[in-house]
Amino acid sequence: MGVLLPALYVGCLGLFFGLVLSIAAKAFHVDVDEKITKIIDVLPGANCGACGFPGCGGFAQGVVDGTAAIDACIPGGKECTEKISGIMGTKSSPTKMKNVARVRCAGGKNNSTIIAEYSGIQDCKASLLVHGAGKVCTSGCVGFGNCADVCPFSAITMNENGLPVVDTELCTGCGICITECPRNILELVPLNKTVYVGCMSTDPGKDVRKYCEIGCISCKICEKVCPVEYEVDGEKRKAIKVVNNIAIIDYEKCISCGKCMEKCPKNVIFSLRDHKSIVADIDQDKCIKCTICIKNCKFDAIEGKVKEKHTIIADKCISCGVCIDKCPKNAIEFIPR
């Protein structure tokens, strides 16, 4: 009896509450569209807000309501879009190449002049209130890593030079760092456009030379070596152009050949790819000998005719990747030289 009574007592109480709760669950049942829960399951769950909706739940609701485009989830990428389209029963549009943030400053604390020591709040925005952590350059990175702190995918790390480094694998192009950076040093560029200018300074070359070892001095050599030439209203233009004392790449036209990077006297142009150590290579089994790659190669680095074997001349190939993007059969890829 001594054990039985409390056991019975707690058991009955538990049973009673269980019953009440199960009745309540029925009585207070709120219908949730099962598509919404399914979509939430396939989303990355980062709640980054890159789609413009409040969190992943809001986006799923938007997709079901028809107010959100199914390919709006940038972190989820192509895979996620396909899954959502499967759930919604609609066809996915071909997704765009993912964007990756690029750091447009290369003058860290080791190679850019610092004239004052800042010991205030360790925060980019706070430091800018007192002239940006003592750096002479007024457009360079102040280096407190606000971008690294806000990145929901841990794709940004600060290196020992005090500059952010973007991991292109982890970066999803959500753009949170872009809005966070008070100096707008980060820029979103499609992943297949590998070349970027690592400087934002609009100061004249002679000034930049004084305070930064790696800064654009607007010498226009990049403009001269750029192989992409086109005309707009009778005016000749290149894919890279010095405007307002800073080299700007037109990503619509840039073919990521890396010529400007090679010739830049200040080494301020960078590429995600090491153009010297890789070369394009055709998989002969997949190749259908259509000559599309030959027509698109700006450097005459591919030989061959229709229905004849295509070969890449390694000496001429500068690993721009245009043929890889254009090949309809995905038969071309980079191999080490």
């Binding site: 707690v10 109480l13 538990g14 509450f17 709760l21 309540a24 009585a27 207070f28 709120v30």
Partner: peptide, 25 residues
């Protein structure tokens, strides 16, 4: 002496119930 265990049971179910009630109404 069953106070602690009973109260845990009561509070946990109460919170669950309130949560459901709020979600609905």
């Amino acid at each position: 002496y069953l106070r602690t265990v009973t109260f845990i049971l009561v509070i946990a179910s109460l919170v669950q119930f309130v949560e459901m009630f709020l979600q609905k109404s």
